[in-house]
């Protein structure tokens, strides 16, 4: 285990959120079950009163949990000088290759779910009779389980590092000709795939932005098809962008034409972390819109939900557009 300020913060968040997630999950599920029964007015009031504390606790805990994703990578980056032969975060992840893959895949899922729940909770709080109360607590119990598993994963991950282990450098994984990010584009676009990746990246992002812009005025809670298409386009764009970033964008931005490591890009050109964060938020926004459209639909929420959906599409346009502008600036002014 490597103990520094980042590890302490990371472990503190993991212990705090992991401990709170257990009662939160149990109580929210109980709340969901009890709300389903026929209740007298005084019973209903008692449950509502108890729910306020639970919702406050959930909101604070989940906001803290949201921070754990960026702090996770900051912590790994802080370990780089401590391990011999390691160049970037990739080397650190190789100290625990399987667990780090699981944790890294799980973190975006937790982030997406937490933001989804926070939006649903906010939508419900804007109503007079809390029509989403039951759905909200069922969703909260699921989110609590996810948060608990994520915290447990962090705790195990950061306390069981074998710092004496021999690890491979990122070049042995990202720069071999048989790397995964090259094989798929080769099979689709042929050997000269690199030539098409950048135009494809721009086309895909611009198409997504254009779709969001065109859908914006037509977006209502009844336009479920539009939100589904938005999610499909965002996912497709995410796949194309991921391949393009590994294969073309990162090497160009770093000025290392044969180096395809995104962790090195974050390290050498630090503002690309912000660019990546904007891209993730832009990609998740249509997903949150679909989630709200599926879970937040009610007579009372109709007006507010429409506003929320539009705001999320607008967020997608701003976030994806800004990350695209940042990439363009780096490509134009290469160091």
């Amino acid at each position: 285990m490597i103990l520094n300020a980042y590890t302490i913060v990371m472990l503190f968040i993991a212990i705090l959120t992991g401990t709170l997630a257990i009662p939160l999950g149990v109580l929210s599920f109980r709340m969901y079950q009890r709300w389903g029964k026929t209740l007298y007015d005084d019973e209903r009031t008692a449950i509502e009163n108890r729910s306020y504390l639970l919702l406050h606790m959930a909101t604070v805990m989940l906001f803290v949990k949201l921070l754990s994703w960026p702090i996770f990578y900051a912590t790994l980056q802080s370990y780089v000088p401590n391990i011999q032969g390691v160049m970037c975060i990739f080397g650190i992840t190789q100290l625990h290759p399987y667990l780090s893959s699981i944790v890294q895949i799980f973190k975006p899922v937790v982030f997406f779910s937490i933001c989804g729940w926070l939006l649903l909770n906010r939508l419900d709080r804007g109503t007079e009779t809390a029509p989403l109360f039951k759905r909200k607590f069922l969703f909260l119990s699921v989110v609590s389980i996810l948060a608990f598993v994520d915290s447990a994963g962090d705790l195990i991950y950061f306390t069981t590092f074998n710092i004496k282990a021999f690890v491979a450098c990122c070049t042995t994984f990202f720069d071999i000709p048989e790397r995964a990010t090259a094989m798929l584009p080769i099979s689709i676009l042929g050997e000269g795939y690199e030539r098409y990746m950048l135009p494809l990246y721009y086309l895909s992002n611009i198409l997504l932005i254009a779709f969001m812009g065109i859908s914006y005025p037509r977006l209502t809670p009844h336009a479920l098809r539009l939100t589904i298409i938005g999610v499909v386009l965002a996912l497709l764009n995410a796949v194309i962008t991921t391949f393009a970033i590994f294969e073309v964008v990162a090497p160009k931005i770093m000025n290392l034409p044969y180096h395809h490591c995104i962790y090195c890009m974050w390290q050498y050109v630090p503002d690309t972390t912000f660019m990546s964060a904007l891209f993730v938020i832009g990609t998740f926004s249509p997903g949150w819109a679909l989630l709200l459209n599926l879970m937040g639909k009610h007579k009372e929420t109709a007006v507010t939900l429409k506003e929320y959906l539009r705001n999320l599409y607008f967020l997608c346009i701003v976030a994806i557009g800004t990350s695209l502008v940042m990439v363009t600036i780096h490509l134009l002014f290469k160091g």
Partner: peptide, 8 residues
């Protein structure tokens, strides 16, 4: 974002 990217 533009300022950040340009500065870097």
């Amino acid at each position: 974002s533009i300022v950040l990217a340009l500065a870097t």
